[in-house]
């Protein structure tokens, strides 16, 4: 009877082999071949070119900056959300969750309409500047700031939620104990609350950094054709240049980057969580 139960997994196994394992093997095979189908490491050597490395570094840089901004905005948000005095807390938390379920393209498009030259924010900023005697118009779209803005807007809820979960399930008695033992508010925060929320911080960082470092949509829509991130390079290789070999090599570099950073975050989150317990 156990055999029959095990065979229930068969469709799952077949599907995973066909659509998860085989595609990844194909990417590896393509990455290790040249256009003629011969084995080569040339694709990885080509990637070491400063042009590509700079794009990679820019992607990592802007994703880190976005993660830092989200953490700075998100931590106080999550912390205040756990306050007891708030009324209608359930609705309030729902309000912070709703944006996560909004279509990602709609969220990005919303910033496009605000930041383009006739957009609400741009025209307001320019009107204020003209009041103070400025003659020229500022352009807020198609630059680094616009892409960063779009990223923070898109990924902030993904930082708030894990932080809120970690802070909310924290045992309030530990905080009271620290206060009873004479710790100041600042000490309680630094020595008790912050260390206990580290697993939440770790998963928040992972949930923001991962999509931010791989995006190509936000950079394309808000950064314009000139502002390229790592994701744009991969998209270009597959859809415009048609060099699958080089594109596959870049995909593997991206996978490696993500798995390494995820491994680091997991270890950090686990160790701190486990150490406290």
């Amino acid at each position: 009877m156990h055999r029959s139960q095990k065979s229930a997994s068969l469709p799952f196994i077949v599907w995973m082999v066909l659509f998860t394992i085989v595609p990844i093997i194909l990417v590896i095979v393509y990455a290790l071949q040249n256009g003629g189908g011969d084995f080569t490491l040339q694709n990885f050597v080509d990637f070491a070119d400063p042009i590509y490395i700079n794009v990679l570094l820019r992607s990592i840089g802007i994703a880190l900056l976005c993660t830092a901004v989200c953490l700075l905005i998100g931590y106080p948000t999550a912390y205040f959300l756990t306050h007891k005095g708030l009324d209608k807390k359930g609705i309030l938390i729902l309000l912070f969750i709703i944006p996560m379920w909004m279509n990602f393209l709609v969220r990005t498009y919303a910033w496009l309409t605000l930041l383009e030259s006739n957009g609400l924010i741009t025209s307001t900023v320019n009107a204020i500047r003209h009041l103070f005697g400025a003659q020229d118009d500022v352009r807020l779209l198609y630059n680094y700031g616009a892409v960063l803005m779009g990223m923070v807007y898109n990924y902030l809820p993904f930082m708030i939620l894990p932080l809120y979960t970690a802070l909310d399930k924290m045992d309030k008695k530990v905080i009271e104990a620290a206060e009873d033992l004479g710790a100041t508010k600042f000490q309680v925060f630094v020595k008790v609350v912050l260390p206990l929320s580290l697993p939440g911080i770790a998963s928040g960082i992972t949930m923001v950094f991962m999509p931010a470092v791989t995006t190509f949509v936000i950079s394309r829509l808000l950064g314009g054709a000139q502002f390229k991130l790592f994701g744009d390079l991969i998209e270009q290789q597959f859809l415009f240049t048609g060099d699958w070999n080089f594109g596959s090599a870049m995909s593997l570099v991206m996978m490696a980057l993500l798995l390494i950073s995820m491994g680091l975050m997991n270890r950090f989150g686990d160790r701190e969580g486990g150490g406290i317990l």
């Binding site: 659509f19 998860t20 085989v22 595609p23 990844i24 194909l26 990417v27 393509y30 991962m210 999509p211 791989t214 190509f216 994701g231 991969i234 998209e235 597959f238 699958w244 594109g247 596959s248 995909s251 991206m254 996978m255 993500l258 798995l259 995820m262």
Partner: peptide
């Protein structure tokens, strides 16, 4: 855990 863009291109190749 595979980033969406890699899932996308790998399935496209397949």
């Amino acid at each position: 855990l595979t980033p969406d863009i890699v899932t996308g291109v790998s399935l496209m190749i397949l």
